[in-house]
Amino acid sequence: MAFVCNWCTYAGADLAGTSRMEYRPNVRIIKLPCTGRIDPLFIIKAFENGADGVLVSGCHPGDCHYTTGNYHARRRWIGFKNLMEFVGIDMRRLHFSWVSASEAIKWVDLINNVTDEIKRLGPFMEYKGLKENRAEQRKG
Protein backbone atom coordinates (compact mmCIF):
# COMPACT_ATOMS: atom_id res chain seq x y z
CA MET A 1 0.00 0.00 0.00
CA ALA A 2 1.29 3.44 -0.87
CA PHE A 3 0.45 6.68 0.89
CA VAL A 4 1.27 9.55 -1.41
CA CYS A 5 0.75 13.27 -1.47
CA ASN A 6 -1.57 14.79 -4.03
CA TRP A 7 0.87 17.31 -5.45
CA CYS A 8 4.08 15.52 -6.24
CA THR A 9 3.98 11.77 -6.09
CA TYR A 10 0.37 11.35 -7.16
CA ALA A 11 1.06 13.56 -10.15
CA GLY A 12 4.30 11.66 -10.82
CA ALA A 13 2.38 8.40 -10.81
CA ASP A 14 -0.15 9.92 -13.21
CA LEU A 15 2.70 10.92 -15.50
CA ALA A 16 3.96 7.36 -15.53
CA GLY A 17 0.52 6.43 -16.82
CA THR A 18 0.35 9.20 -19.38
CA SER A 19 3.76 8.03 -20.64
CA ARG A 20 2.43 4.45 -20.81
CA MET A 21 5.23 3.05 -18.67
CA GLU A 22 4.69 -0.31 -17.08
CA TYR A 23 5.22 -1.42 -13.50
CA ARG A 24 4.28 -4.17 -11.07
CA PRO A 25 0.56 -4.18 -10.35
CA ASN A 26 0.82 -4.88 -6.63
CA VAL A 27 0.51 -1.34 -5.35
CA ARG A 28 -2.69 0.30 -4.08
CA ILE A 29 -2.43 4.04 -3.70
CA ILE A 30 -4.11 6.16 -1.07
CA LYS A 31 -3.99 9.84 -1.93
CA LEU A 32 -3.58 12.38 0.85
CA PRO A 33 -3.12 16.12 0.53
CA CYS A 34 0.44 15.98 1.88
CA THR A 35 2.81 13.51 3.51
CA GLY A 36 2.41 15.68 6.59
CA ARG A 37 -1.14 14.29 6.89
CA ILE A 38 0.19 10.76 7.33
CA ASP A 39 -0.41 9.37 10.75
CA PRO A 40 1.95 6.52 11.74
CA LEU A 41 -1.17 4.58 12.65
CA PHE A 42 -2.19 4.55 8.98
CA ILE A 43 0.82 2.40 8.31
CA ILE A 44 0.18 0.00 11.13
CA LYS A 45 -3.44 -0.26 10.01
CA ALA A 46 -2.27 -1.03 6.49
CA PHE A 47 -0.22 -3.97 7.78
CA GLU A 48 -3.13 -5.09 9.91
CA ASN A 49 -5.27 -5.18 6.81
CA GLY A 50 -2.96 -7.49 5.00
CA ALA A 51 -0.45 -5.20 3.30
CA ASP A 52 2.94 -6.90 2.94
CA GLY A 53 4.73 -3.60 2.54
CA VAL A 54 4.02 0.08 2.83
CA LEU A 55 5.40 2.97 0.82
CA VAL A 56 5.22 6.61 1.79
CA SER A 57 6.10 9.13 -0.86
CA GLY A 58 5.83 12.87 -1.28
CA CYS A 59 7.51 15.96 -2.59
CA HIS A 60 11.26 16.43 -2.31
CA PRO A 61 12.46 18.33 0.77
CA GLY A 62 11.83 22.00 0.11
CA ASP A 63 9.27 21.32 -2.62
CA CYS A 64 6.28 20.47 -0.49
CA HIS A 65 3.16 22.16 -1.80
CA TYR A 66 2.46 23.29 1.75
CA THR A 67 6.06 24.44 2.19
CA THR A 68 7.05 22.27 5.17
CA GLY A 69 4.59 19.38 5.41
CA ASN A 70 7.15 16.83 4.33
CA TYR A 71 9.62 18.00 6.97
CA HIS A 72 7.03 17.18 9.58
CA ALA A 73 6.54 13.81 7.94
CA ARG A 74 10.27 13.18 7.96
CA ARG A 75 10.65 14.18 11.57
CA ARG A 76 7.80 11.90 12.57
CA TRP A 77 9.33 9.19 10.46
CA ILE A 78 12.48 9.08 12.52
CA GLY A 79 10.66 8.61 15.80
CA PHE A 80 8.40 6.21 14.05
CA LYS A 81 11.11 3.74 13.07
CA ASN A 82 11.56 2.71 16.69
CA LEU A 83 7.86 2.20 17.07
CA MET A 84 7.84 -0.06 14.01
CA GLU A 85 10.48 -2.30 15.42
CA PHE A 86 8.60 -2.35 18.69
CA VAL A 87 5.37 -3.54 17.10
CA GLY A 88 7.31 -6.15 15.18
CA ILE A 89 7.36 -4.76 11.69
CA ASP A 90 10.52 -5.36 9.71
CA MET A 91 11.73 -1.97 8.51
CA ARG A 92 12.53 -3.49 5.14
CA ARG A 93 8.82 -3.65 4.49
CA LEU A 94 8.57 0.09 4.81
CA HIS A 95 9.85 2.57 2.28
CA PHE A 96 10.03 6.31 2.25
CA SER A 97 10.88 8.15 -0.92
CA TRP A 98 10.64 11.53 -2.62
CA VAL A 99 9.05 11.47 -6.05
CA SER A 100 8.26 14.71 -7.80
CA ALA A 101 5.54 15.35 -10.36
CA SER A 102 8.03 14.93 -13.18
CA GLU A 103 9.78 11.80 -11.90
CA ALA A 104 7.66 9.15 -13.58
CA ILE A 105 10.68 6.92 -14.11
CA LYS A 106 11.66 7.18 -10.48
CA TRP A 107 8.14 6.15 -9.50
CA VAL A 108 8.23 3.13 -11.80
CA ASP A 109 11.63 2.01 -10.50
CA LEU A 110 10.52 2.58 -6.94
CA ILE A 111 7.40 0.44 -7.28
CA ASN A 112 9.33 -2.32 -9.04
CA ASN A 113 12.15 -2.34 -6.52
CA VAL A 114 9.90 -2.17 -3.49
CA THR A 115 7.66 -4.92 -4.88
CA ASP A 116 10.66 -7.15 -5.59
CA GLU A 117 12.17 -6.58 -2.20
CA ILE A 118 8.92 -7.37 -0.44
CA LYS A 119 8.41 -10.44 -2.60
CA ARG A 120 11.81 -11.60 -1.44
CA LEU A 121 10.76 -11.13 2.16
CA GLY A 122 7.57 -13.08 1.48
CA PRO A 123 4.13 -12.32 2.84
CA PHE A 124 3.94 -10.46 6.13
CA MET A 125 2.63 -13.16 8.45
CA GLU A 126 3.03 -11.62 11.87
CA TYR A 127 -0.28 -9.77 11.69
CA LYS A 128 -2.18 -12.33 9.66
CA GLY A 129 -5.36 -13.32 11.34
CA LEU A 130 -5.31 -10.21 13.49
CA LYS A 131 -8.38 -8.77 11.88
CA GLU A 132 -10.29 -12.04 12.08
CA ASN A 133 -9.28 -12.53 15.70
CA ARG A 134 -10.50 -9.13 16.59
CA ALA A 135 -13.81 -9.73 14.84
CA GLU A 136 -14.21 -12.94 16.79
CA GLN A 137 -13.32 -11.31 20.06
CA ARG A 138 -15.95 -8.70 19.41
CA LYS A 139 -18.51 -11.41 18.77
CA GLY A 140 -17.48 -13.46 21.74
Binding site: L32, P33, C34, G36, R37, D39, G69, H72
Partner: peptide
Protein backbone atom coordinates in the same frame (compact mmCIF):
# COMPACT_ATOMS: atom_id res chain seq x y z
CA UNK B 1 -5.74 21.86 4.14
CA UNK B 2 -2.40 20.11 4.34
CA UNK B 3 -3.40 18.04 7.35
CA UNK B 4 -0.08 18.39 9.18
CA UNK B 5 -1.96 19.39 12.32
CA UNK B 6 -4.11 16.27 12.19
CA UNK B 7 -1.14 13.96 12.28
CA UNK B 8 0.46 16.14 14.97
CA UNK B 9 -2.48 16.05 17.38
CA UNK B 10 -2.01 13.29 19.92
CA UNK B 11 -5.53 13.42 21.31
CA UNK B 12 -7.04 13.12 17.82
CA UNK B 13 -8.94 16.32 18.34
CA UNK B 14 -8.41 17.87 14.97
CA UNK B 15 -9.46 16.39 11.67
CA UNK B 16 -9.25 17.37 8.04
Amino acid sequence: GCGVCVAACRSKSIDL
